[in-house]
Each structure stands twice: as C-alpha cells, then as structure tokens.
Write a protein that binds this DNA or RNA. Structure first.
Lengths: 338, 338
DNA sequence: GTGAAAGCGCTAACAC
DNA sequence: GTGTTAGCGCTTTCAC
C-alpha cells in the first residue's frame, strides 16, 4: 500500500494552511508560530511525511551528492578508501554515487558524464589503468565541478589530489632491502602510464644508485597489478642464471604472485629471496611468510579526499592546486631477511 | 568557467523554437522534423548540453537509482557483491547510492530513511550484525518500495532475498571433515541472531548427528566474524585437554584467526588439526596452508539481487516472496587432511 | 506569522 | 510537426 506519497501540500490542505507555512514549520525557520509548527510537526510525523529530496535538490540546485569512480571494488585498497569516503561524506550530510570503471577508460568517461548529469556537487576519481588521455577530466573541471584524484593520480597541472609519496616510500623500502644485504634487487612493475608506477620505479632506481648498485633494466619486469602478472614476472627471472636476491613489487598482489612463483621453484623466502610489496592489504599479514610492505592509509586517503573535495565545493581553498600527501609507514615482516 | 548550465530552454531560445520541441528532438520522439532535430542535436552538442537528471527524475517520478546498504566495505564478500550490483545496475541504466551501516542498527535505519527520501526505486540490503528488530524493513515495504535482502537475511515472511543454502553447504563440508577421519570437530560461530549463523550451525549439528557423533556444546564457541574472535575462539579450545581434530568456522576470516592460533600453539595444519572456512575470500588460497572452504558466488549474488529487485520494480513477479538460493561449491585445499 | 506566486529543468497532454 | 500549458514537490522572495 504505497500510501500515495505525502507532500507538504497534503499537510497544508489538511491543516488548512499554506504549503509555504508547512515548509517553514518543517525547518527551523523562525517566523512561524510555535502552535502552527507543533501542529505541522505532529501531523507530519503521524502521516510519516518524508521530504522529497529530488524536489528539494532541483529547487536548491544542490544535490548533496558526491560521485565516486574507482577502477574496481574488487581491489581491497579501493574498498577501504570507499569506506573512508562513505563515512566521511555521511558525516557531512552527503550521499555518494559509486561507479567502477572496470579498468576501462571508456567506461570511466561514461560514468563521469552520468555523474555530471546527476548534478553531483563533486567527484572523487582514481583513474583506470588504461586511461591515457584526460579530456574527460578536463571537461569536468571546465564545468566547474570540483574533482579530486586519489592514489592513481595523473600528472596534470591544477588537479587536486590525495596520495602518498610513492617515490620516497619506494626508495625507503628498497634502501631497507639493500641494508639487509641484498644487492641484486628486481622490480616487478605495473602499468607505466600511471604516475604511481613511475614514481615507485624512480624510487627503486635512486635507492640503487645511492647504494652504488648498477641499475640493470633486465631486472625490471612489467606487470599489470594482478597476482598472475606478479607470478609470471617473478618466474621469468627464476629461469637461467642466478635468481635475484630480492623482489620489490609495485603492489602487494603482485608480491603474492611472486611469492607463489618463488616457492614453486623451490626457493625459500626470505632465506634465498626477499620479497617486498606496497599497500599493506589486510592479506599481507596472513600470507606465509607475512609480507614486508609499505602501509598506505587507505581509509584515511578516502576521508581526506572528501575533506579536500568539500573545501573545494565550499570554495574555501584559494587554489585548486592542492595536492595532499599522506604518510606511509614501512612494515617489516618476515618476507625479507632480518 | 562554469558556463551557466545549458538547459533546453537555452537551446530553444537560440533556435527560436519551443522547449518542448527541443525536448522531443533530444529523444527519438517521432513527431519532429529531421531538419529541426538536426539543428537541435547540432547545437546541443556544440554547447555541451547535458540533461539535468534531477529535473527529469522529479518530472517522471522515477529516480533510476537503487540504494544499497551493506555492513561494511571492508568485508571482501561485500565488496565483491557490490561489484556485481554496480555493474548490473549500470547495465540496466541505474545508478547506485551505497551506504555502510558499520554494523550499527541505528545507522542502518538512518540510511534506509535517507534512501527513501532520495526516492530510490528499490533497495538492496544486508543487515548489520546487531540488527535485532526489523521495523525499519517493514516500513520500507509498507511504502511500496521494493527491497531485496542478500547474504545476511532475516527470517521474516514476504521479504525477497538472495542467498545460498547455508545449511546444506555447512553440512556438506562438515561431512567432508568427518570423511577425512575427524570426529572431534569444533564450530567457531558468529552472531547467532543472524539466520546464516543459525543455519550453518544446524548444518554442522546435523552432519555430526548423521555421522553418529555426539554433539558437544563445549565445542561451539561464539565469535563475531572477526579474525580476532576466530583467534580467541580457537585458542580457548587449545588449552587443557585434547585439542579438537578440526575447526569448522562460520566464515573465512575467523578461520584465518583460528589458523594463527593453531600455529602459535605449535600444532600443524592439517596434520594435527584441520581447518575449514566459509565464503572463499580471495585470500583463502594465499594463506598457508591454503584454506578449505565453501565458495559463495559473491559477485553473482550481487547481480542476482539487482535482477530480482528490477523484476519487483517492474512488477514482473507475481509474488513478493521470492527467495533465490544460489549454488555454493566446496573447495578442498590443504588446510584439511587429504 | 502567514499566504500568494514564481520557478528550479524537464516532460507530456492537448491544441492547432 | 510544433507551441502552449500545466505540473512534478519543494523553497523563497515579496506582500500583507
């Protein structure tokens, strides 16, 4: 029995007052008599009145909605980030419309269009790994819709973002590997169009250079973030010749793949080969041996992205070029030599 | 430069035609001359016109939006389900507003209210583990808003749902444990107000009974789905007296906790103690040893929930009492004796 | 303190 | 084939 939705007009008619008065009574508008307000509240409650947010949004030209586009919900990092985003947005009285690009640039573009049409007040985006151009992002900016990138950030001027210092974190952990006595360190990389992959690779190279270790391009193998690509990548270096003393992997899932390959080939971790990852997925502490990695504050990255976006929406920030960089933390577990 | 949003009125003025004609031209409405349509399309494109979905929604009284409420994005099962939900909804031309209750009944209720006010056409819900009453769910039903429960279903008449046969799957896997020679099998349980926990426990008991094994209530310990509770629960049975020969855990994360406890106490898995879980989280194959578990088709559960919801929205289904039960699959790995 | 009226951007029934 | 008009449910001037 869909009780033929109650509107303010309905209430107004029953109480024989005008709908503007009802509208006012329902908020805390001062210019309405206590008596009237009481009657309105009473009846509204009794009838189970619920404001039609769509009407309100149209009138106020504010949707109180944020759009979120991520590559995939299946990636633990993004689930955690969304968790932070959703909680924070709710605190601010905002709803979120979530979309996953499934790593397709076209889909990402399509969702951006939908979000624009949906009149979201701002957009939080982490680009797909196939995203090459960024006209779609520029388009959003040009419309004056605040947009914040996170994690997978692209190297474009004037786009606010929330991320970590990938370069430094990578450099630190590779430095740590060197300290534990590894010199032949391989790097299992991800999609090189992504800035974070480039940065982590730079960190890797610079750590080697500073340690006086010659960079060998044969020791870098390209993957795509997937466990399988980590497996294959690691395996490819385990054939003829001496195996690497350590693998630094651009993300945890590739590290898990590498661990599988290493074990399958009969090597021990970390006695024969050390493995280090990046992200610190919840799984990292459960694999065997537990993975040494860089902890990214996924949840906090999400809530920070909302904060930044809200400040943009409220035009609090003078500039649009705010890039927030959050702290990482190296977590040493047992996948690397002591 | 927020180019002062283009509306159909804008286009109408420029072309010196009426806005209804523009509206018609923009759809594939037949009664508009090819010439006019062309001019409209052209200009719309050129100006970057985008329909204001909020206005459309208000007018058509259809939001083309679905609401989704889950306990937490941090639980891998729900991320996967949401992934299925989002993709399927998008295929049907729907957006989703996602909310997480953070396992709080009050928050869950609050979100339901927001979703109603947001005029979502339907709601997909998995209740929090603290949810006791269900007036909030009844309220949604009474308003005539289609609602589908999934996974964490509550035993109430007339609520459509998507889940698996928890009873049978639990029974099967415990039966398997028995077959491998285990007789003293402990059960690490979850929040007992949830039907799925009750069902899995029933399956456990019946499997024991059918194998002629006496049920010992001391061998059932209550947890809350968390890894820690699995750890503590397992540990509590590892003190004095003989340890169980096997642990059947109500979910994978508790199984991971149990494995940690077992290893810490110096027992071997599965030589000394077998461990079985439920859900088949991606992690399950990466822990050591890989976990024997019941695979739930999380992604498919999500898409099925959308399908069911859509059929309700379109009133295709005669009855509201549709309970879809999807197939599980027992996955034997190395955490149980061969 | 309250009501009348306009309007957010769109669609659609009804004229012509 | 196109224009006029009304209206979705709400907020908000502007009167009184």
């Amino acid at each position: 029995m869909p009780e033929g939705n109650i509107t303010i007009l309905e209430i107004a008619r029953i109480l024989d007052i005008s709908k503007s008065t009802v509208s006012r009574a329902l908020k805390d508008s001062h210019d309405v008599s206590p008596a009237t307000r009481h009657r309105v509240m009473e009846l509204a409650n009794q009838l189970g009145y619920r404001p039609n947010l769509i009407a309100r949004q149209l009138k106020e030209r504010k949707s109180r909605t944020l759009g979120v586009v991520i590559p995939s919900f299946m990636i633990p990092f993004y689930s955690m980030a969304i968790s932070g985003i959703q909680n924070r947005a709710a605190e601010m009285g905002y709803s979120i419309i979530t979309c996953q690009s499934n790593e397709s640039e076209r889909t990402e573009e399509k969702y951006l269009e939908i979000l624009i049409s949906s009149q979201v007040e701002g957009i939080i985006l982490s680009v797909s790994k196939t995203t090459g151009k960024h006209d779609h992002i520029e388009r959003v900016k040009k419309l004056g819709i605040p947009l914040v990138l996170f994690n997978r950030v692209i190297p474009v001027e004037g786009i606010p973002s929330v991320s970590v210092d990938d370069y430094q974190a990578a450099k630190d952990i590779v430095h740590y590997l060197v300290q534990t006595g590894c010199r032949d360190i391989a790097f299992l990389s991800g999609p090189t169009n992504l800035l974070l992959c480039q940065d982590r690779e730079r960190g890797y190279k610079d750590a080697l250079r500073e340690a006086g270790i010659a960079f060998d391009s044969q020791r870098v193998v390209q993957g795509d973030f997937s466990l399988e690509s980590g497996f294959r990548g690691a395996l490819s270096l385990l054939g003829g010749g001496a195996p690497p003393e350590a693998y630094f992997c651009v993300c945890d899932s590739m590290a898990f793949g590498a661990m599988l390959a290493i074990k399958q080939k009969g090597f021990r971790i970390p006695e024969d080969i050390s493995v280090a990852g990046f992200t610190n997925e919840p799984i990292a502490q459960l694999v065997d041996p537990p993975l040494t990695t860089v902890a990214q504050p996924a949840f906090e990255i999400g809530s920070t992205a909302v904060d930044l976006l809200m400040s943009l929406i409220r035009k609090e920030s003078g500039s649009n070029e705010i890039r927030k960089v959050l702290q990482t933390r190296m977590i040493v577990r047992e996948s690397t030599r002591g």
